[in-house]
Amino acid sequence: MSEPQSAPDPLQPARLGPVTLRNRVLKAATFEGRTPKSLVSDDLIEFHRQVAAGGAGMTTVAYCAVSPDGRSAKHQLYWRPEALPGLRRLTDAVHDEGAAVSAQLGHAGPVAPALELGSPALSASRRLHAASMSLTKAASAADIDRIARQHAEAAEKAIECGFDAVELHFGHNYFISSFLSPNLNRRKDSYGGELRNRARPALQTARAVRDAVGDRIAVLAKLNMDDGAPGGFWVDEAAQVARWLEADGSVDAIELTAGSSLRNPMYLFRGDAPLQEFAGAMKQPVKLGVQLVGKALIRSYPYEDAFLLEQARQIRAAVRLPLVLLGGITSKETMDLAMSEGFQFVAMARALLREPDLINRIQAGERDKSLCIHCNKCMPTIYRRTRCVLVPEG
Rank of each mutant, 00 (worst) to 15 (best):
S2F: 10
Q5Y: 01
D9L: 09
D9I: 05
P10Q: 14
P10V: 14
R15T: 15
R15H: 11
L16K: 05
L16F: 15
G17H: 01
R24H: 14
R24F: 11
T30L: 11
G33E: 14
S38K: 00
L39T: 01
V40W: 01
I45M: 08
E46N: 04
E46S: 07
R49M: 04
V51K: 04
A53W: 01
G55F: 00
G57E: 06
G57Y: 07
G57I: 08
M58P: 03
T59F: 05
T60Y: 07
T60E: 13
A62R: 09
A65T: 12
R71A: 07
S72D: 13
A73M: 11
A73N: 15
Y78G: 02
R80T: 06
E82A: 09
L84Y: 03
P85I: 04
R88L: 08
V94A: 14
H95E: 12
A99T: 02
S102H: 07
A103P: 06
G106E: 06
V111S: 10
L117I: 07
A124R: 02
A131I: 12
M133N: 15
L135R: 06
A138F: 01
A138T: 02
S140N: 04
R146D: 15
R146V: 08
I147Y: 08
R149P: 00
E153F: 00
A155Y: 04
F163R: 13
D164I: 00
E167M: 11
L168G: 10
G171S: 14
S177W: 01
S178Q: 05
P182L: 11
P182F: 12
N185K: 09
K188Q: 15
S190E: 15
L203E: 13
T205R: 07
A206W: 04
A208C: 10
A212F: 05
D215V: 00
A221C: 15
L223A: 12
N224H: 05
A229R: 02
G232Q: 08
F233A: 11
D236P: 04
E237R: 04
A238C: 09
E246C: 05
T257K: 01
G259A: 04
N264G: 12
P265C: 09
R270L: 11
D272S: 15
L275N: 06
Q276W: 03
E277Y: 06
M282A: 15
L288D: 03
G289T: 02
Q291F: 01
L292R: 10
V293E: 10
A296C: 03
R299F: 07
Y301N: 08
P302K: 08
F307L: 00
L309H: 02
E310M: 02
A312D: 04
R313W: 01
Q314Y: 01
Q314N: 07
R316F: 02
A317Q: 12
L323M: 13
I329D: 10
D336Y: 00
F345H: 13
F345T: 13
V346Q: 13
R350W: 02
L353N: 03
L353V: 07
R354V: 06
L358M: 06
I362Q: 03
G365T: 10
R367Q: 14
I373N: 13
H374C: 09
K377E: 07
T381D: 13
R387M: 02
C388M: 03
G394W: 00
